[in-house]
Design a protein around this nucleic acid. Sequence first.
RNA 1: GGUCCAUUAGCUCAACUGGAUAGAGCAACUGCCUUCUAAGCAGUAGGUUCCAGGUUCGAGCCCUGGAUGGAUCACCA
Length: 636
Amino acid sequence: MSLDLAIREGISKAFASLYSFELASAEVALQETRKEFEGSFTFTTFQFAGRVKKRPDELAQELGDFLKENVDEVEDYNVVKGFLNIVIADSVWLKTFNSILKDEQFGSHPSNGQTVMVEYSSPNTNKPLHLGHLRNNFLGYSISQVLKANGYKVVMANLINDRGIHICKSMIAYLRFGGNKTPEEYGKKGDHMVGDFYVRFDQEYKSEIEELIVEKRNEYPALDSVEDLKARKKEIEKKGKKNELSAEEREQLNAIKELFNRAEKEAPIFLEAQDLLRKWEAGEPAVYDLWKKMNGWVYAGFEDTYKRIGVSFDKYYYESDTYLLGKDLVMEGLEKGAFYKKEDGSVWCDLTNEGLDEKLVQRGDGTSVYMTQDMGTADLKYKDFTLDKSIYVVGNEQDYHFDVLKRIMKRLERPYAEGIYHMSYGMVDLPHGRMKSREGTVVDADDLVDEMVQTAKQRTDELGKIDGFTEEQAEKLYHQLALGALKYFILRVDPKKRMVFNPEESVDFQGDTGPSIQYTFARISALLRKGKEDGVAFENIDLSAYNGLEAQERDVIVALSNFPKVVADAGRNYAPSEVASYAYDLSRVFSRFYAELPVFKAEPEVIAFRLALSSAVAKVIEKAMNMLGVEVPERM
RNA sequence: GGUCCAUUAGCUCAACUGGAUAGAGCAACUGCCUUCUAAGCAGUAGGUUCCAGGUUCGAGCCCUGGAUGGAUCACCA
């Protein structure tokens, strides 16, 4: 029985026998005692005081007496106002530590027989991965590991968006300007090369729009450039927000908008891209081959990046296979009365009684929309793996979409509907604002990793601690540190929140950072190496009879004992950040122990105990960091 | 305009889901390498938790109203 469970049961019994008051042990809320008070667990009595007709401090006192008397684990207690601080005997902590040592699976929960799919990454094949994708990939990979530790069977899936107008844009630009070159000839990774052509399309498109506007803009002789027109448009729109538009201005705004719209729709390169999409959908061989070829380049590039950032997938889905799915669900929904058809033949799901809008699930012409496709894909995933839960790691701009998806699947009575969870995360901002590809403020994932590796190398060289490393070992270390810094920096933040990525800060390796935790592991590894060299037996030893526990050592054991709960909470809350902050806490508690208590200048028994303690910390740090997708080096 | 989300130290983030004097790191300042790795440890300083009300023994957290920033409300994906 775990320690906190024993105490919760004790409190429950105390209430029953002292006051005939029923409080299930599961309902007993224990918190960690704040460090300025003595004790390990705190029970707050205020909310119960009235119900058992006692003053809070009086109640705490009586509960404390009962616990001290009846619960073996409780050595002592103290009461501050209504707070009952429970002191645990060192022998109990040692017993706890002993069972941690023996438990190879410590922190991992046994299989719960459930299967969960985590869909993440899900890139478009028209441009390389950037900083925003990194948050997605790190979160997806990490939550998968956390769920595995919670006893789920996890399928990591990547739904690749490999079709649509955006890919056609890259294709058109390649046809026009690509000179039939391969990525090798072009001198870039495949994904970057295709991304270049996507940008090229945009440039071309813009200049064609401008040409068209210049041609047709005779209505505005006073304005002589497209920039002027845009500025004028903005100005009027701003006024419009305050409802101060004159009829003339409104007319002018509409005219400008119309002008832009027409130009956007009539630009030759855009028409070509649309035409290409039609040809692709018709399966025209030449178009299809080009599409395959270019996607192949992109995939090779992605695989390379995935490998570098240490994420992987068990299953790939391609939108070119799934984009027509879901039509049978539309039929089913109509039959079940979950959907209805409008006069024009379009099919809708009415969610107004749930406080949402009506949602289109099929166009009037019978073709699918995004939602249709996602409905079908959800069903496909279930058919493939019989999922209990389905997690979508997707940015919070799609909160509404997934809210609707879940409700629709519930109306279609899908068994997995309740298990759909949108792991929504906030955007990654740069210190000067959000990333905008058009303004060139996108941080490319590959470049970022390169820079981080450079920084790691530089930092390591400055410290000069890795003499004797082969080049290969050194490269590996730089990579581990770079990714450790990057992943930790991103994962320590609550996923739901928007975060600021400051390139200068993220390369910091001191303080609350990945490398500083990795450093703790490296130091422990050094201790253990020395222990082994000295022939100290510290593995598989029984320490239940050890005495003379120091405060710093007890703090380490307490921190260790929290690990299983942290893993469970992180899984329940879908929050890798909780694992990250735990890893840092543990690392700090250990560092304090390390700084204040020497390991090898002690009695043999103490040496063995401290080495065992250190090795347990190393194992937990490794497990926790691995859950974040971070590797830990034995030397740095 | 409707809906949803955010706002905590100069900066980046926490706060165990309503508990004690709101904590860390960075930046600044003090100490600690002749002792197991100083990428560390100990300390000083830094707060009207956006504002105004409310709920209760107790509110950063819940409720109401407002401010600021963002997302979304496509027969785009």
